[in-house]
């Protein structure tokens, strides 16, 4: 089997109401077999529904349906800035392949979809941050606050200067330290998430 996967997503430019409630949106999935548009197979539907690790990309799948025309509609939830997702899958077979292996097909399809999501994530880490990283980000304000209080309240001038130096700061002001630590922690979480 060979798979080609392409995602086309749109990002909303209006992020002012991003804090309001998240409503499920619909992802259209088009399937092509040997370059011809075809009805999506049950194996691929199953892969989309239960094999792909959507949570690693900050997405949750709520429902999967197939229309009369063979197009799959996936109800999803994710970041508010993510407006729409279109997925196109192309499957074809090498002429030498004699046996069909459904488990192999599932593995390949899953890997290809996740690779395409990863391609999106590398370019747009803010849109495809994993659920676990979002969880970690919640601790950043508290941790930054705690660390900067520890540093700025110290009476050891040498220690304070050394901390400021490590952070690349000129001052040992509480707000400067907190802001620097916050930025650094968020960057580390984003970098690890991309890996």
């Amino acid at each position: 089997w060979f798979f080609e996967v392409c995602f086309a997503v749109t990002e909303s430019l209006n992020t002012t109401n991003s804090s309001t409630k998240i409503e499920p949106k619909q992802m259209k999935v088009l399937f092509f077999e040997d370059c011809v548009c075809a009805t999506i197979t049950s194996t691929i539907l199953q892969t989309l529904n239960s094999k792909v690790s959507w949570d690693r990309f900050g997405l949750s799948i709520k429902d999967v349906q197939v229309t009369d025309t063979g197009i799959a509609l996936i109800e999803w939830e994710g970041p508010a800035q993510l407006e729409s997702i279109l997925l196109v899958l192309h499957r074809y077979r090498s002429s030498q392949t004699m046996l069909q292996s459904w488990s192999r097909e599932t593995q390949l399809c899953k890997r290809c979809i996740e690779d395409a999501l990863n391609d999106l994530k590398q370019q747009n880490p803010h849109l495809f941050c994993s659920h676990s990283s979002k969880e970690l980000q919640r601790y950043v304000p508290d941790l930054s606050c705690c660390l900067s209080k520890l540093i700025s309240s110290s009476s050891d001038i040498e220690f304070k200067d050394s901390c400021a130096q490590i952070l690349g700061l000129q001052s040992t002001d509480y707000n400067d330290i907190r802001s620097s630590i916050t930025t650094r922690l968020l960057q580390v979480i984003e970098d690890l998430d991309k890996q």
Binding site: W1, F2, E4, F7, V9, T10, L13, C112, K121
Partner: peptide, 11 residues
Amino acid sequence: SIKIGKAFSGS
């Protein structure tokens, strides 16, 4: 704005 992510995999 539209973003594109793509991949290929084969056995």
